[in-house]
Simulated scan of single mutants.
Amino acid sequence: TDPAVVVVDERGRFAVSLLSGHLGGGNELARRVAAILGGRAVITTASDVLGLVSLDLWARSQDLVPRDEKTMTRASALLVNKGSLCLYSEVPAASLPKGLVAVDRPEEADLVISSRADWPANTLVFHPRELVVGVGCNRGTPVREFAAALDEVLAARSLSPLAVRNLASLDLKRDEKGLREFAAIHGWEVVFYTKEELNRVAGITVSPAALKATGARGVAEPAALLSARTDILLMEKKKWPNLTLALAKAKFMLSALVREACNT
């Protein structure tokens, strides 16, 4: 994201948002500067002028990720040109901002919100970050093994890695280099739980090996469930030579909320 640039005239009458009005926070900064100087903010971004939602700010506020670099640009241009977008969402919506209209079928939609990765190439898709990956691993497991295992899991279910919210594991793995590096590559947080917390989770597959080594009845499944705050697994644990993964889906609800950015 480019840094925000706001230009003010010599008398402080106008604060003009010149660059990076939305994600860079230029528009909000212009409003703040104008308020301080007793002047007027000049906002020229098309969606603001037309009274429509700033799609990039809304997506960030809702924890939605465009499927690729061009999707946000295409969707924002379409919104400005049409005045509204038909939205098909696989996650529930409590409300939607001005300019987005819910539809019941994906073929009616201009924009789709889904964790799935198998949409046609020309479909405008935002991925909700709703997937939680529970991880158990041996000491010294390299990054490439984490990557290969998760790629296999997601591909088998046609899920996008952009829909992953975070990883979860046992607190004894806090210093596990491969796990930490793998999470850092993708910008994912790793949430850790004690064995006592994991052992309180009911309905999991007990692992004798994990119980003997760590005192936890299981790691991947209960960690995923705890972090996602659910009692239903999207995928029960799957084992590889050095690691175990489980998948859960966190509750996700769209709203009309848009948080302004101001990077100052």
Rank of each mutant, 00 (worst) to 15 (best):
L162Q: 12
I204K: 05
S207M: 10
V33Y: 10
G24W: 01
D110N: 03
A117N: 11
A210N: 10
A102M: 09
E260L: 08
I185S: 05
W188C: 04
T71I: 11
G134N: 06
P161D: 12
R40P: 00
H22W: 06
S227Y: 11
G218V: 08
V132D: 03
G187Q: 13
V33I: 15
E108H: 09
A202W: 09
A77N: 12
R129S: 03
S115D: 12
K173M: 07
H186I: 07
L124P: 00
I185Q: 12
L198K: 03
R11N: 14
R165P: 00
T214H: 09
L29F: 11
E181C: 04
A213I: 09
C86Y: 14
L254Q: 10
T1F: 11
N199T: 13
S17D: 08
A202Y: 06
R180E: 07
Q62P: 01
S84I: 04
A148C: 00
S169M: 11
L162S: 02
W58Y: 06
T123K: 05
V112L: 10
G25N: 12
N138H: 11
T214S: 06
S158K: 15
A223G: 01
R116C: 07
A148L: 14
Q62F: 00
T214M: 05
P208E: 15
P106I: 15
G25E: 13
A109Y: 10
C262D: 08
T214Y: 07
S160A: 02
D110I: 13
S89Q: 08
L111V: 04
E90W: 08
E197G: 00
E28N: 03
V133T: 05
C86S: 11
V201S: 03
T244A: 01
L233G: 01
E28H: 06
A156I: 07
V135S: 04
A246L: 02
D175E: 15
L57M: 06
V132G: 05
P128Q: 11
W188M: 05
T44F: 04
R11L: 13
G83S: 04
E196R: 09
A148K: 12
V132T: 09
W240H: 08
G187S: 04
L23D: 12
V80A: 02
T141H: 09
L79P: 08
A15S: 01
V201G: 02
R217G: 03
G215R: 10
D171P: 02
N81W: 14
V6Y: 03
V91C: 03
E176K: 02
L78I: 15
V258I: 15
D56F: 05
E260A: 11
